[in-house]
Computed example of a mutant assay.
Amino acid sequence: MNLLARAEHWYGAGAHADDFTLINVDLAIGAALYRGGQLISGAHGIASEFGHTKIMPDIGRPCFCGAKGCLQAYCSIHSIIEQSCERLGRQMPSHEVMNPCFDGLMAEYAAAEIDIRTVLEQASHYLGIAVANHITMQDPEAVIIIGPPVARMDELRGAFFTALEQNTFPALRRRTRLHFKPRDQGAYARGAAAMVLEHVYAAS
Protein backbone atom coordinates (compact mmCIF):
# COMPACT_ATOMS: atom_id res chain seq x y z
CA MET A 1 0.00 0.00 0.00
CA ASN A 2 2.81 2.42 0.81
CA LEU A 3 4.40 1.82 -2.60
CA LEU A 4 1.08 2.45 -4.34
CA ALA A 5 0.58 5.64 -2.35
CA ARG A 6 4.09 6.85 -3.20
CA ALA A 7 3.43 6.17 -6.88
CA GLU A 8 0.28 8.30 -6.72
CA HIS A 9 2.03 11.05 -4.79
CA TRP A 10 4.90 11.34 -7.24
CA TYR A 11 3.34 10.40 -10.56
CA GLY A 12 -0.43 10.03 -10.24
CA ALA A 13 -3.62 11.66 -9.03
CA GLY A 14 -1.99 12.66 -5.74
CA ALA A 15 0.83 14.59 -7.39
CA HIS A 16 -0.86 17.92 -6.72
CA ALA A 17 -2.30 17.07 -3.29
CA ASP A 18 -0.44 17.09 0.01
CA ASP A 19 -3.37 15.43 1.80
CA PHE A 20 -4.96 12.41 0.15
CA THR A 21 -6.04 8.87 0.92
CA LEU A 22 -5.43 5.90 -1.34
CA ILE A 23 -7.84 2.96 -1.05
CA ASN A 24 -6.99 -0.27 -2.83
CA VAL A 25 -9.83 -2.73 -3.42
CA ASP A 26 -8.19 -6.06 -4.17
CA LEU A 27 -8.43 -9.54 -2.65
CA ALA A 28 -8.24 -7.54 0.57
CA ILE A 29 -8.85 -3.82 1.13
CA GLY A 30 -5.99 -1.58 2.15
CA ALA A 31 -5.39 2.15 2.48
CA ALA A 32 -2.52 4.60 2.83
CA LEU A 33 -2.65 8.22 3.93
CA TYR A 34 -0.61 11.24 2.94
CA ARG A 35 -0.86 14.22 5.28
CA GLY A 36 1.15 17.39 4.87
CA GLY A 37 2.98 15.77 1.98
CA GLN A 38 4.18 12.90 4.17
CA LEU A 39 3.17 9.24 4.17
CA ILE A 40 1.93 8.53 7.68
CA SER A 41 1.43 5.50 9.89
CA GLY A 42 0.14 5.03 13.40
CA ALA A 43 1.94 5.16 16.72
CA HIS A 44 2.74 1.46 16.42
CA GLY A 45 4.00 1.63 12.85
CA ILE A 46 0.84 0.13 11.37
CA ALA A 47 -0.68 1.67 8.25
CA SER A 48 -4.41 2.29 7.92
CA GLU A 49 -6.45 -0.91 8.29
CA PHE A 50 -9.34 0.56 6.33
CA GLY A 51 -10.64 -2.88 5.38
CA HIS A 52 -11.17 -3.78 9.01
CA THR A 53 -13.31 -0.80 9.93
CA LYS A 54 -16.75 -2.07 10.84
CA ILE A 55 -19.70 -1.61 8.53
CA MET A 56 -22.00 -4.16 10.23
CA PRO A 57 -20.52 -4.59 13.73
CA ASP A 58 -21.39 -7.68 15.80
CA ILE A 59 -23.99 -9.07 13.39
CA GLY A 60 -22.19 -8.94 10.05
CA ARG A 61 -20.30 -11.51 8.01
CA PRO A 62 -17.22 -13.02 9.69
CA CYS A 63 -13.85 -11.63 8.63
CA PHE A 64 -10.55 -13.50 8.62
CA CYS A 65 -9.31 -11.11 11.33
CA GLY A 66 -11.71 -12.81 13.76
CA ALA A 67 -14.25 -9.99 13.97
CA LYS A 68 -17.61 -9.59 12.25
CA GLY A 69 -18.92 -6.94 9.91
CA CYS A 70 -15.62 -5.64 8.55
CA LEU A 71 -15.75 -3.65 5.31
CA GLN A 72 -13.47 -6.30 3.84
CA ALA A 73 -16.08 -8.99 4.49
CA TYR A 74 -18.41 -7.28 2.01
CA CYS A 75 -16.39 -5.26 -0.48
CA SER A 76 -13.11 -7.08 -1.16
CA ILE A 77 -12.69 -9.25 -4.25
CA HIS A 78 -12.36 -12.28 -1.97
CA SER A 79 -15.67 -11.48 -0.30
CA ILE A 80 -17.52 -10.72 -3.53
CA ILE A 81 -16.39 -14.09 -4.91
CA GLU A 82 -17.34 -15.84 -1.67
CA GLN A 83 -20.81 -14.31 -1.56
CA SER A 84 -21.34 -14.95 -5.28
CA CYS A 85 -20.35 -18.61 -4.89
CA GLU A 86 -22.76 -18.96 -1.96
CA ARG A 87 -25.53 -17.42 -4.05
CA LEU A 88 -24.77 -19.52 -7.14
CA GLY A 89 -24.07 -22.80 -5.31
CA ARG A 90 -20.50 -22.93 -6.58
CA GLN A 91 -17.34 -24.09 -4.87
CA MET A 92 -15.03 -21.38 -3.61
CA PRO A 93 -11.91 -21.17 -5.82
CA SER A 94 -8.39 -21.43 -4.46
CA HIS A 95 -6.54 -18.24 -3.56
CA GLU A 96 -4.21 -18.53 -6.56
CA VAL A 97 -7.02 -18.18 -9.13
CA MET A 98 -9.27 -15.66 -7.39
CA ASN A 99 -8.46 -12.69 -9.62
CA PRO A 100 -9.26 -14.52 -12.88
CA CYS A 101 -12.32 -16.02 -11.16
CA PHE A 102 -13.52 -12.52 -10.31
CA ASP A 103 -12.98 -11.40 -13.89
CA GLY A 104 -15.00 -14.41 -15.04
CA LEU A 105 -17.85 -13.62 -12.64
CA MET A 106 -17.98 -10.04 -13.85
CA ALA A 107 -18.04 -11.20 -17.47
CA GLU A 108 -20.89 -13.61 -16.71
CA TYR A 109 -22.77 -10.85 -14.90
CA ALA A 110 -22.28 -8.40 -17.78
CA ALA A 111 -23.64 -11.03 -20.18
CA ALA A 112 -26.69 -11.56 -17.90
CA GLU A 113 -25.71 -15.22 -17.43
CA ILE A 114 -25.75 -14.94 -13.62
CA ASP A 115 -27.49 -12.66 -11.13
CA ILE A 116 -25.11 -11.29 -8.50
CA ARG A 117 -26.42 -7.74 -8.62
CA THR A 118 -27.41 -7.82 -4.93
CA VAL A 119 -23.84 -8.74 -3.95
CA LEU A 120 -22.34 -6.00 -6.12
CA GLU A 121 -24.82 -3.33 -5.07
CA GLN A 122 -24.21 -4.15 -1.42
CA ALA A 123 -20.44 -3.89 -1.94
CA SER A 124 -20.85 -0.52 -3.67
CA HIS A 125 -23.22 0.74 -0.96
CA TYR A 126 -20.95 -0.24 1.94
CA LEU A 127 -17.86 1.10 0.20
CA GLY A 128 -19.69 4.41 -0.21
CA ILE A 129 -20.52 4.51 3.51
CA ALA A 130 -16.93 3.67 4.49
CA VAL A 131 -15.49 6.37 2.23
CA ALA A 132 -18.04 8.85 3.62
CA ASN A 133 -17.02 8.04 7.18
CA HIS A 134 -13.36 8.46 6.28
CA ILE A 135 -13.94 11.82 4.58
CA THR A 136 -15.98 13.03 7.55
CA MET A 137 -13.33 12.01 10.05
CA GLN A 138 -10.09 12.80 8.16
CA ASP A 139 -11.02 15.61 5.73
CA PRO A 140 -8.62 14.55 2.95
CA GLU A 141 -8.16 16.78 -0.07
CA ALA A 142 -8.72 13.77 -2.33
CA VAL A 143 -9.60 10.08 -2.16
CA ILE A 144 -8.15 7.77 -4.80
CA ILE A 145 -9.83 4.37 -5.17
CA ILE A 146 -7.90 1.67 -7.05
CA GLY A 147 -9.40 -1.65 -7.99
CA PRO A 148 -12.17 -3.39 -9.91
CA PRO A 149 -14.81 -1.17 -11.50
CA VAL A 150 -17.62 -2.00 -9.05
CA ALA A 151 -18.25 1.62 -8.11
CA ARG A 152 -17.68 2.79 -11.71
CA MET A 153 -20.13 0.47 -13.44
CA ASP A 154 -23.12 2.46 -14.63
CA GLU A 155 -25.68 0.25 -12.93
CA LEU A 156 -23.79 0.30 -9.62
CA ARG A 157 -22.64 3.91 -9.58
CA GLY A 158 -25.87 5.03 -7.94
CA ALA A 159 -25.45 2.74 -4.93
CA PHE A 160 -21.96 4.07 -4.20
CA PHE A 161 -22.68 7.76 -4.67
CA THR A 162 -26.04 7.67 -2.91
CA ALA A 163 -24.36 6.18 0.16
CA LEU A 164 -21.52 8.69 -0.12
CA GLU A 165 -23.89 11.67 -0.35
CA GLN A 166 -26.14 10.50 2.47
CA ASN A 167 -23.33 9.79 4.94
CA THR A 168 -20.65 12.44 4.35
CA PHE A 169 -20.70 15.59 6.46
CA PRO A 170 -22.19 18.07 3.94
CA ALA A 171 -19.51 20.74 4.33
CA LEU A 172 -16.84 18.23 3.31
CA ARG A 173 -18.48 16.27 0.50
CA ARG A 174 -18.21 18.95 -2.20
CA ARG A 175 -14.66 19.81 -1.23
CA THR A 176 -13.23 16.30 -1.53
CA ARG A 177 -12.07 15.12 -4.94
CA LEU A 178 -12.64 11.47 -5.88
CA HIS A 179 -10.56 9.51 -8.39
CA PHE A 180 -11.26 5.96 -9.59
CA LYS A 181 -8.39 4.07 -11.19
CA PRO A 182 -8.00 0.51 -12.51
CA ARG A 183 -5.29 -1.70 -11.07
CA ASP A 184 -1.86 -1.04 -12.56
CA GLN A 185 0.92 -3.49 -11.68
CA GLY A 186 3.48 -0.97 -12.88
CA ALA A 187 2.50 1.28 -9.96
CA TYR A 188 4.54 -0.88 -7.57
CA ALA A 189 7.71 -0.23 -9.56
CA ARG A 190 6.96 3.49 -9.72
CA GLY A 191 6.36 3.48 -5.96
CA ALA A 192 9.71 1.80 -5.37
CA ALA A 193 11.41 4.43 -7.53
CA ALA A 194 9.62 7.16 -5.58
CA MET A 195 10.83 5.67 -2.29
CA VAL A 196 14.43 5.89 -3.52
CA LEU A 197 13.87 9.50 -4.61
CA GLU A 198 12.43 10.36 -1.21
CA HIS A 199 15.59 9.11 0.49
CA VAL A 200 17.79 10.98 -1.99
CA TYR A 201 15.99 14.28 -1.39
CA ALA A 202 15.87 13.71 2.37
CA ALA A 203 19.65 13.20 2.44
CA SER A 204 20.46 16.24 0.30
Rank of each mutant, 00 (worst) to 15 (best):
L88H: 05
G89D: 04
E96R: 08
A73R: 02
G42A: 12
Q38T: 12
C65G: 07
H78F: 09
K54F: 09
I23A: 12
G66Q: 02
N24S: 12
Y74L: 11
R35L: 11
T53R: 09
C85Q: 05
C70T: 01
G66L: 05
A43R: 13
A73Y: 00
F50T: 13
S79N: 03
I29Y: 03
G69L: 02
T21M: 13
T21I: 15
S94W: 01
S94L: 07
C70E: 02
Q83N: 07
C85K: 01
H78I: 05
G37N: 01
S48E: 13
C75T: 10
Q38G: 08
N24E: 07
P93I: 05
S48V: 14
Q72S: 13
G30V: 08
I40E: 06
M92K: 08
G89V: 04
M92V: 03
L22Q: 09
M56H: 10
A32R: 09
I55A: 09
S76V: 08
C85P: 02
G37T: 06
Q38A: 15
G66W: 00
H95F: 04
T53F: 00
R87Y: 01
L39F: 00
I59Q: 12
S79P: 01
G66Y: 03
H95T: 14
Q72F: 00
I59T: 15
H95C: 06
R35C: 09
V25H: 02
D58V: 13
A31P: 02
Y34A: 14
H95P: 04
P57Q: 05
I29R: 07
V25K: 09
G45K: 06
G51E: 06
A67I: 02
R87A: 08
A28N: 10
L33C: 14
A67V: 11
S48D: 13
E96L: 07
I40F: 05
Y74H: 06
G51Y: 01
S76L: 03
R87P: 00
S41M: 07
G51I: 01
E82C: 09
L33S: 15
I59F: 09
E82M: 12
H78R: 15
L27M: 15
L88V: 03
G89Q: 05
A31K: 06
G69C: 03
F50R: 11
K54T: 12
A73D: 01
